[in-house]
């Protein structure tokens, strides 16, 4: 695993010096995160149509080890500020992940919908949860990633760039997290 990560990191960073294109440089990222913006990898987020400022902040945090993730800290280690911009701009143009074919259990969907409005997820993330600026797209994100991330914000193990999500999650229960993740992963 460590070898693979090191190889990935090399592939991603090697290039500013050489003439590699962004498409070539980002290929190793998309191997896990999905070539068409949609991740098929467990616990690994879809990146498609993620607002560039959000992605830039996350890459910055991975680089500075302000957000802990073994592969990402290593991969982002040698990225320059310009790289951060190039990657995040490119990722923003990947197609957004589509909603799953399965429309979901209507009762759970309704519960999740009400929770998303109660906790004002839609104020910052937009009414269609497409995100804006530093606020990520969460519509049709992987359910496992959403549930894990919300739990990590709640227990402060994911510290975030600022404290916004910790603030919001203070009042959300574990059961509600499950419903929110279920709803957001399927919202259309």
């Amino acid at each position: 695993m460590i070898k693979i990560i090191a190889a990935l990191a090399l592939a991603v960073t090697a290039s500013s010096a050489t003439a590699e294109t962004i498409e070539q440089r980002i290929a190793p990222c998309l191997a896990c995160h999905g070539e068409k913006g949609q991740s098929e990898t467990e616990s690994t987020p879809s990146l498609g149509a993620q607002p560039a400022p959000y992605t830039l902040i996350q890459l910055f945090m991975f680089r500075e080890k302000l957000r802990a993730s073994e592969p990402m800290n290593e991969i982002a280690k040698a990225l320059t500020d310009d790289d951060l911009r190039t990657f995040s701009d490119f990722i923003a143009k990947l197609p957004k992940p589509p909603p799953p074919a399965d429309a979901g259990d209507p009762v759970r969907m309704q519960r999740g919908d009400a929770l998303a409005r109660q906790h004002r997820c839609d104020a910052c993330h937009n009414p269609d949860f497409s995100g804006k600026d530093n606020v990520p797209r969460i519509a049709n994100q992987r359910e496992d990633y959403l549930a894990r991330t919300l739990s990590e914000y709640k227990d402060n193990s994911r510290q975030g760039y600022d404290g916004s999500m910790a603030d919001v999650m203070a009042q959300v229960t574990a059961e509600q997290i499950a419903d929110l993740a279920y709803f957001l992963a399927r919202v259309r």
Binding site: L56, K132, D133, Y161, D162, S164
Partner: peptide
């Protein structure tokens, strides 16, 4: 509201719109 999408100016505002928080 963008930042990185406006390529050349991006340095200036590189982030300008990131929302900070709850102060």
């Amino acid at each position: 509201m963008m930042i990185c999408s406006c390529a050349p100016r991006s340095l200036l505002l590189a982030g300008a719109f990131f929302g900070a928080f709850t102060l």
